[in-house]
Structures are given as structure tokens and as C-alpha cells.
Amino acid sequence: MHAAAPSPTHLAFRHPLPIRIAHWINVTAMTILLLSGLQIFNAHPELDFGSTSSFYKHPALTIGATGESPDRGYLQVFGHRLDTTGVLGVSRSDGDVSERAFPSWITLPAEQDLATGRRWHFLFAWIFVVNGLVYLAFGLLSGQLRRRLIPTRAELRGIGASLREHLTLRFPKGEEATRYNVLQKLAYLIVVLGLLPLQILAGLAMSPGFDAVAPWLPEAFGGRQSARTAHFVIAMLLVAFVFIHLAMVLLTGPFNQLRGMITGWFTVRAEREAS
């Protein structure tokens, strides 16, 4: 044993209850928002810039079907086409080949049903917004937001080292693992105070009722269809974030991480010696 042995493996309290509750409500809400959002997208699978639609004349993005036999599905971004038959544009649902932008296994509801998709989306938009406000209020009042998400000067200076550690998949151990490191803080900060509020604003900018209240909002995005495009792109960025987030959980011990977010307690492993 080393003379100045670091504290042995022990449990540390990591996530306060309000944050754990908010986290799991958020997981549910964002999942439903994504799947019902894709259902909504299918009703008009075209994204444009400006206030109005180009009606497939020069879409920024569209997902479609050629209508030939055999039918081919494609994703078209700024005029570049990619054959996506089987997944986007043309896919199977219940054994039948159908022309739909996103396939039935990733939309809510599975069948083409814009009315119900919208109801899911807006109900969970409310849940998502209220949950986010509670999280923010708790985070600000308890100082958790600052402690958890705002990097210190010293941390910002260490960003290069942290980047190197991550690229070589050597993650912080011991006491250091009980706090978010600088990269984590920055990623969460961008998502929590950047992308998520922006996603809510882009959603509101598409509302004719809300646009009467705040005519500047769709304009700030460059028009309602630009807001729709932004809403879609942010949704995809959030999906990318969630994939990285889950990869990190898997790489750093999923059981420990899950227990941390469920019970609040997190195992801190003793820092291993050269042995």
C-alpha cells in the first residue's frame, strides 16, 4: 500500500433528487417529442428557408419516393440525392411497402396519423417545458446549475488535457469522477442553456397564435419555414448528443452511472496504483 493512499472505493452522493426526477421526465418527454415530431414531419417532408414553402421546387431538405417500380426512397439535401430505400422515403410497415418519409418503427403513432402525432407532441412539449423550468429554478436556487455546469477558469485552461484524455478514452477516476469534467460541462451547457431553449423557441415560432403575440420570433429565425428547418436540425443535433451521452455512459460503467442517476449514489473507485 502506498503511504498517502487515496480514499478506498466508496459511495459518493452525486445527483440530488430534483435533478434525478427532472432527468428521467426529460428522457421520456424528449423521446416522445422526437418520435411524434417525425410523425409530424412525414405530413410535409420538406424543409425550406424563409416564411413560405417552396413546395418541392427548391427544398433545403426533402425525403421522397421516386414512384417508379420498384419504388425507390431518397433523402435530398441541397440538391444532392442519396438512395435511402428501406428506411427513408420508401419502407415496409406491416409487411407492405409504403411511401413515407420516416419509417413506421420510428414514428409515434406508428401508422400515418398526423392528428394523434400532434397531440402527443404538444402534450409532451408542455411536460418538457414545465420540467425544464422546474429544473432551472432548482438549479439556480440551489447553486447546482453553477456547480455542475459552469466551468471554472482553471477547468477552461485544462481543456486541452481533457480533450486528449477523452480521445484516448482515459476517463477521470476517483474523486474527479464525481464532478463533471470541463468537456462534459461545456456539452451539457450548450444543450441545456442553448439547444433546448432554442428548440422551444423554434417550436413556438411555428405557432400562428404565438406569432401574433411575438411577431419578432419567426423573423428572428428568418421566417416560419426557417424556424421549421431549425427545429428539425436541432432535433437531429439532440439525437447526436444523446448518442454520445449514451456512449459515454457505456464507456464509464453503465451500472454505476445508472445507479447514480436513479439513487443518487455513485461508486468512486480507488485510484489504482502502478500495479
Binding site: 404538444f122 402534450l123 403575440v213 411577431p215
Partner: peptide
């Protein structure tokens, strides 16, 4: 009924935020 709650909330809050005279944007 549960899914309907979202629409009710939207109507309630939008009506709070707008006056009966608030105009939709004109171009």
C-alpha cells in the same frame, strides 16, 4: 382525454398572452 389536455393548455395560455385585438403578423 389526456392527449386533449395539451390543446386545452395551449388555448388557455395563448389566450392569456394575447388580447382579443392582437393581430397576426401582416406582410
Amino acid at each position: 382525454n389526456a392527449l386533449q389536455a395539451g390543446d386545452d393548455a395551449t388555448q388557455f395560455v395563448q389566450r392569456l398572452l394575447m388580447t382579443p385585438q392582437t393581430l397576426a403578423p401582416e406582410f
